[in-house]
Design a protein around this nucleic acid. Structure first.
Lengths: 228, 228
DNA sequence: AAAGCGGGTAAAATTGTGGTGACATTAACA
DNA sequence: TGTTAATGTCACCACAATTTTACCCGCTTT
């Protein structure tokens, strides 16, 4: 390993924390431990670890708060949420807090390590997290954020997915079918109006003047295209 | 089928794999099989199949890892995840690993085939990014755009279709019937004036001086021809 | 229990495209 | 040069595609 990777582990259950920390250390990572939200936050800001493993249920301060707070303070590395119930995350809208990914407890240690390895490789390759700029905006798909002149707007999961697809296919006319396939998958059971609705909502977030869109343009009779 | 479509099938359950592979082959696809994540990865990178069918639960390396790893290595084709539990995918955040779509096991073979067909249809369409140049103009049929010295003009569906047809038959005299057939199909119930009208509108966009067309010329008594 | 959020839908409002008739212009040929 | 048929142009309108408004539902948090 050519660079020491720091991982912050925020978990109040000491047994679990010990287990995870030991395993991660044995994998060659440097582990920073904390069992408390407030403390963790300060530590993370000063230490700037490459990955944060964050428990969802923390005494005092909720994981979501810690996460949102870190993002506020400009922390842009990976945050992996650890949660008890599988369904929680999406329901909770965790991505809106800036969570990059999550793993459900109880988890297999191998899976966790694999996940981290893969994330690390990715973020090292890309140095910075993936990001697309257009006009005075910047889209950070990993954090579901849209930055306009420094001000942040949160995107929902669907908005994020739609925008990302457009950005990957800029200037190309995308028909509704294709877009729906991309967003809802093959078993799309939503009607076309719904897609249009999401376009409207997205426009409100990305367009300087949503009434006359400059980026996300309609192509009458076909679908839309993203121009920049 | 004008092009051989390659599908990589990564599944450790040999019975299932055999069934799927056989069906896909009978549909005319070339199938590359693998029951192991590591091996599959190498194969996919070298073979570059058009679609990867990837089991989520693999011995050794998780499907998610394989997927993420493939994406890192620049593999940008479709990856369809096959998973046991319906809820898993969204919960797991599979899209973050680069999964394009998923199908839940047990699945109906017909559904799988339909899904693949439909996916293929799009990804093949996407490959062609044609462009036709004439004079100081450039026509991008996929974007419905006409670029004249860097300035863009939008084309409507019909304009785009008509222009494309002319460009594919440059210097050839096209009679009205043929053109109407091309644009409105065989049950065209529009009158001839309508076609002329579209020619006029198109000329306004493509001709430097629409009053005396140089590209889209009239062939009195027959129809039109596109000269360049 | 109530409020807030994401996301889906129906229905009304709006808009742009394309079709048409009426008329002008042109080209061909006597 | 006059006649005629073919083509060009204009202004208008219908209609379908799209946008907007307003609402519902399920879920979560307080």
């Amino acid at each position: 390993m050519n660079k020491e990777i720091k991982i912050a582990l925020v978990e109040d259950d000491e047994n679990l924390r010990f287990l995870v920390a030991e395993r991660l250390q044995s994998e060659g990572y440097k582990v920073l431990e904390s069992g408390n939200g407030e403390e963790a936050e300060a530590m993370i800001i000063t230490e700037q670890p490459d990955i944060v493993l964050l428990d969802w249920m923390l005494p005092g301060k909720q994981g979501s708060e810690v996460c949102a707070s870190l993002r506020e303070k400009g922390f842009d590395k990976l945050i992996i949420m650890m949660t008890a119930k599988a369904q929680d995350i999406d329901k909770i809208g965790a991505y809106n807090f800036g969570v990059s990914d999550y793993i459900t407890k109880p988890f297999n240690m191998d899976v966790l390590v694999a996940m981290i390895d893969s994330k690390i490789k990715f973020s090292l390759n890309n140095e910075k997290a993936e990001s697309h700029k257009f006009g005075n905006m910047e889209h950070l798909p990993n954090t579901h954020l849209l930055i306009r002149d420094g001000r942040k707007t949160e995107l929902t999961i669907l908005e994020n997915r739609i925008l990302l697809y457009f950005l990957k296919n800029k200037n190309k006319v995308i028909n509704r079918e294709e877009l729906m396939m991309e967003v809802w998958g093959y078993n799309a059971d939503v009607n076309t109006r719904t897609l249009d609705m999401h376009i409207v909502r997205l426009r409100k977030k990305i367009e300087n003047n949503p009434d006359s869109p400059t980026y996300l343009q309609t192509v009458r009779g076909i679908g839309y295209k993203f121009v920049y």
